[in-house]
Amino acid sequence: MIQILIIDDHPLVSDGVAAMMKGLDYMQIMGACKSGKEALFFLKDHFPDIILLDISLPDMDGIDLCEQIRKQNKKTKILGLTSTNEAGIIRQFLAKGGNGYLLKNMERDELIMAIDEVINDKIYLSKAANQKILEQYQSVNDAVKSTPVLTRREKEILQLLYEGFNGPQIAEQLFLSPFTIETHRKNLLQKLNVNTTQLMLRYAKENKLI
Protein backbone atom coordinates (compact mmCIF):
# COMPACT_ATOMS: atom_id res chain seq x y z
CA MET A 1 0.00 0.00 0.00
CA ILE A 2 1.46 3.34 -1.03
CA GLN A 3 0.71 6.02 1.59
CA ILE A 4 0.28 9.47 0.05
CA LEU A 5 0.32 12.95 1.65
CA ILE A 6 -0.96 15.95 -0.30
CA ILE A 7 0.37 19.44 0.60
CA ASP A 8 -1.71 22.09 -1.18
CA ASP A 9 -3.60 25.10 0.09
CA HIS A 10 -6.36 24.61 -2.45
CA PRO A 11 -8.89 22.16 -0.95
CA LEU A 12 -10.28 21.15 -4.35
CA VAL A 13 -6.94 19.84 -5.56
CA SER A 14 -6.77 17.05 -3.01
CA ASP A 15 -10.38 16.16 -3.85
CA GLY A 16 -9.40 15.96 -7.50
CA VAL A 17 -6.40 13.80 -6.80
CA ALA A 18 -8.51 11.56 -4.55
CA ALA A 19 -11.08 11.18 -7.34
CA MET A 20 -8.35 10.17 -9.76
CA MET A 21 -7.16 7.46 -7.42
CA LYS A 22 -10.57 5.98 -6.84
CA GLY A 23 -10.49 2.29 -7.66
CA LEU A 24 -6.75 1.94 -7.18
CA ASP A 25 -6.63 -0.04 -3.99
CA TYR A 26 -2.84 -0.03 -3.65
CA MET A 27 -2.76 3.75 -3.15
CA GLN A 28 -4.13 5.52 -0.11
CA ILE A 29 -4.29 9.21 0.73
CA MET A 30 -3.27 9.40 4.37
CA GLY A 31 -3.75 13.15 4.75
CA ALA A 32 -3.91 16.61 3.20
CA CYS A 33 -2.13 19.66 4.67
CA LYS A 34 -2.98 23.22 3.70
CA SER A 35 0.25 24.93 4.75
CA GLY A 36 3.93 24.27 5.23
CA LYS A 37 3.67 24.56 8.98
CA GLU A 38 0.82 22.09 9.14
CA ALA A 39 2.76 19.67 6.94
CA LEU A 40 5.91 19.83 9.06
CA PHE A 41 3.80 19.17 12.15
CA PHE A 42 2.02 16.26 10.47
CA LEU A 43 5.31 14.74 9.33
CA LYS A 44 6.64 14.53 12.89
CA ASP A 45 4.75 11.30 13.52
CA HIS A 46 3.60 10.23 10.06
CA PHE A 47 5.77 8.66 7.42
CA PRO A 48 4.15 8.76 3.98
CA ASP A 49 5.74 6.93 1.07
CA ILE A 50 5.18 9.86 -1.23
CA ILE A 51 4.33 13.52 -0.84
CA LEU A 52 2.55 15.53 -3.54
CA LEU A 53 3.83 19.03 -2.89
CA ASP A 54 2.59 22.32 -4.32
CA ILE A 55 5.41 24.87 -4.49
CA SER A 56 3.25 27.94 -3.93
CA LEU A 57 2.00 27.76 -0.37
CA PRO A 58 0.55 30.57 1.71
CA ASP A 59 3.11 30.48 4.53
CA MET A 60 6.37 29.35 2.97
CA ASP A 61 8.17 28.67 -0.24
CA GLY A 62 7.52 25.13 -1.51
CA ILE A 63 11.15 24.70 -2.56
CA ASP A 64 12.31 25.53 0.97
CA LEU A 65 9.74 23.16 2.40
CA CYS A 66 11.03 20.41 0.10
CA GLU A 67 14.53 20.99 1.43
CA GLN A 68 13.36 20.86 5.05
CA ILE A 69 11.39 17.66 4.55
CA ARG A 70 14.33 16.09 2.76
CA LYS A 71 16.60 16.93 5.71
CA GLN A 72 14.26 15.18 8.15
CA ASN A 73 13.43 12.18 6.04
CA LYS A 74 15.65 10.69 3.37
CA LYS A 75 13.24 7.91 2.35
CA THR A 76 10.02 9.74 1.55
CA LYS A 77 9.60 10.54 -2.14
CA ILE A 78 8.63 14.10 -2.95
CA LEU A 79 6.74 14.78 -6.15
CA GLY A 80 6.11 18.40 -7.10
CA LEU A 81 2.49 18.90 -8.11
CA THR A 82 2.07 22.48 -9.17
CA SER A 83 0.96 24.76 -11.96
CA THR A 84 4.25 26.65 -12.38
CA ASN A 85 6.19 25.49 -15.42
CA GLU A 86 9.48 27.40 -15.31
CA ALA A 87 12.84 25.77 -15.91
CA GLY A 88 14.63 27.57 -13.08
CA ILE A 89 12.03 26.50 -10.55
CA ILE A 90 12.01 22.89 -11.73
CA ARG A 91 15.79 22.69 -11.58
CA GLN A 92 15.91 24.10 -8.10
CA PHE A 93 13.13 21.86 -6.87
CA LEU A 94 15.04 18.79 -8.03
CA ALA A 95 18.27 20.18 -6.56
CA LYS A 96 16.63 20.53 -3.14
CA GLY A 97 15.64 16.88 -3.03
CA GLY A 98 12.52 16.55 -5.18
CA ASN A 99 12.03 13.21 -6.97
CA GLY A 100 9.80 14.44 -9.73
CA TYR A 101 7.81 17.32 -11.13
CA LEU A 102 4.25 17.09 -12.29
CA LEU A 103 1.95 19.81 -13.59
CA LYS A 104 -1.55 20.07 -12.23
CA ASN A 105 -3.23 19.87 -15.60
CA MET A 106 -2.14 16.26 -15.91
CA GLU A 107 -4.15 13.27 -17.12
CA ARG A 108 -5.10 10.52 -14.73
CA ASP A 109 -2.68 8.07 -16.36
CA GLU A 110 0.17 10.50 -16.00
CA LEU A 111 -0.38 10.88 -12.28
CA ILE A 112 -0.40 7.15 -11.74
CA MET A 113 2.65 6.66 -13.90
CA ALA A 114 4.51 9.42 -12.07
CA ILE A 115 3.77 7.87 -8.67
CA ASP A 116 4.82 4.43 -9.88
CA GLU A 117 8.08 5.70 -11.37
CA VAL A 118 9.03 7.77 -8.36
CA ILE A 119 8.24 4.92 -5.94
CA ASN A 120 10.63 2.81 -8.00
CA ASP A 121 13.46 5.30 -7.35
CA LYS A 122 13.23 7.03 -10.70
CA ILE A 123 12.98 10.72 -11.46
CA TYR A 124 9.80 11.72 -13.22
CA LEU A 125 9.29 14.92 -15.19
CA SER A 126 6.01 15.69 -16.90
CA LYS A 127 6.26 16.23 -20.64
CA ALA A 128 5.86 20.01 -20.51
CA ALA A 129 8.40 20.34 -17.71
CA ASN A 130 10.81 18.18 -19.66
CA GLN A 131 10.41 20.49 -22.63
CA LYS A 132 11.31 23.52 -20.50
CA ILE A 133 14.45 21.87 -19.20
CA LEU A 134 15.51 21.02 -22.76
CA GLU A 135 15.02 24.63 -23.90
CA GLN A 136 17.20 25.69 -21.02
CA TYR A 137 19.83 23.18 -22.03
CA GLN A 138 20.04 24.69 -25.49
CA SER A 139 20.69 28.17 -24.12
CA VAL A 140 23.26 26.83 -21.65
CA ASN A 141 24.97 25.24 -24.61
CA ASP A 142 25.10 28.59 -26.37
CA ALA A 143 26.54 30.30 -23.33
CA VAL A 144 29.28 27.72 -22.94
CA LYS A 145 30.76 28.53 -26.35
CA SER A 146 34.06 30.25 -25.61
CA THR A 147 33.97 33.39 -27.77
CA PRO A 148 31.20 35.80 -26.89
CA VAL A 149 28.77 36.88 -29.55
CA LEU A 150 29.27 40.53 -30.45
CA THR A 151 26.34 42.80 -31.13
CA ARG A 152 26.18 44.56 -34.46
CA ARG A 153 27.20 47.90 -32.97
CA GLU A 154 30.05 46.29 -31.08
CA LYS A 155 31.37 44.77 -34.29
CA GLU A 156 31.24 48.13 -36.05
CA ILE A 157 32.98 49.92 -33.22
CA LEU A 158 35.65 47.24 -32.92
CA GLN A 159 36.29 47.51 -36.65
CA LEU A 160 36.60 51.30 -36.50
CA LEU A 161 38.88 51.12 -33.47
CA TYR A 162 41.02 48.70 -35.41
CA GLU A 163 41.18 51.16 -38.28
CA GLY A 164 42.64 53.70 -35.89
CA PHE A 165 39.72 56.00 -35.12
CA ASN A 166 39.24 57.32 -31.63
CA GLY A 167 36.02 57.51 -29.60
CA PRO A 168 34.80 60.96 -30.69
CA GLN A 169 35.61 60.22 -34.33
CA ILE A 170 33.66 56.98 -34.21
CA ALA A 171 30.78 58.78 -32.56
CA GLU A 172 30.71 61.26 -35.40
CA GLN A 173 30.88 58.57 -38.02
CA LEU A 174 28.06 56.48 -36.53
CA PHE A 175 25.91 59.46 -35.53
CA LEU A 176 26.02 58.41 -31.90
CA SER A 177 27.02 60.25 -28.75
CA PRO A 178 30.60 59.76 -27.51
CA PHE A 179 29.09 58.54 -24.26
CA THR A 180 27.35 55.67 -26.06
CA ILE A 181 30.58 54.72 -27.80
CA GLU A 182 32.40 54.72 -24.48
CA THR A 183 29.80 52.39 -22.96
CA HIS A 184 30.09 50.00 -25.89
CA ARG A 185 33.87 50.06 -25.53
CA LYS A 186 33.69 49.33 -21.80
CA ASN A 187 31.26 46.49 -22.45
CA LEU A 188 33.60 45.05 -25.08
CA LEU A 189 36.54 45.12 -22.67
CA GLN A 190 34.49 43.24 -20.11
CA LYS A 191 33.13 40.74 -22.63
CA LEU A 192 36.54 39.89 -24.02
CA ASN A 193 38.05 39.94 -20.53
CA VAL A 194 40.88 42.37 -21.34
CA ASN A 195 42.03 45.62 -19.74
CA THR A 196 43.17 47.77 -22.62
CA THR A 197 41.89 48.61 -26.08
CA GLN A 198 45.16 47.34 -27.54
CA LEU A 199 44.77 43.90 -25.97
CA MET A 200 41.16 43.87 -27.10
CA LEU A 201 42.10 44.52 -30.71
CA ARG A 202 44.73 41.80 -30.59
CA TYR A 203 42.26 39.32 -29.13
CA ALA A 204 39.65 40.26 -31.71
CA LYS A 205 42.14 39.75 -34.52
CA GLU A 206 43.28 36.38 -33.21
CA ASN A 207 39.73 35.14 -32.82
CA LYS A 208 38.70 36.54 -36.19
CA LEU A 209 36.12 38.86 -34.73
CA ILE A 210 37.31 41.54 -37.18
Partner: peptide, 17 residues
Protein backbone atom coordinates in the same frame (compact mmCIF):
# COMPACT_ATOMS: atom_id res chain seq x y z
CA UNK B 1 -2.55 31.25 -10.32
CA UNK B 2 -3.67 29.74 -7.05
CA UNK B 3 -7.40 30.37 -7.23
CA UNK B 4 -8.41 30.09 -10.84
CA UNK B 5 -5.52 27.84 -11.77
CA UNK B 6 -6.29 25.39 -8.97
CA UNK B 7 -9.97 25.37 -9.90
CA UNK B 8 -9.37 24.60 -13.58
CA UNK B 9 -6.78 21.95 -12.75
CA UNK B 10 -9.25 20.21 -10.49
CA UNK B 11 -12.01 20.32 -13.11
CA UNK B 12 -9.57 18.75 -15.51
CA UNK B 13 -8.70 16.07 -12.99
CA UNK B 14 -12.39 15.20 -12.64
CA UNK B 15 -12.83 15.08 -16.41
CA UNK B 16 -9.83 12.80 -16.70
CA UNK B 17 -11.21 10.48 -14.03
Amino acid sequence: HDGFGGLFSTIKMYFST
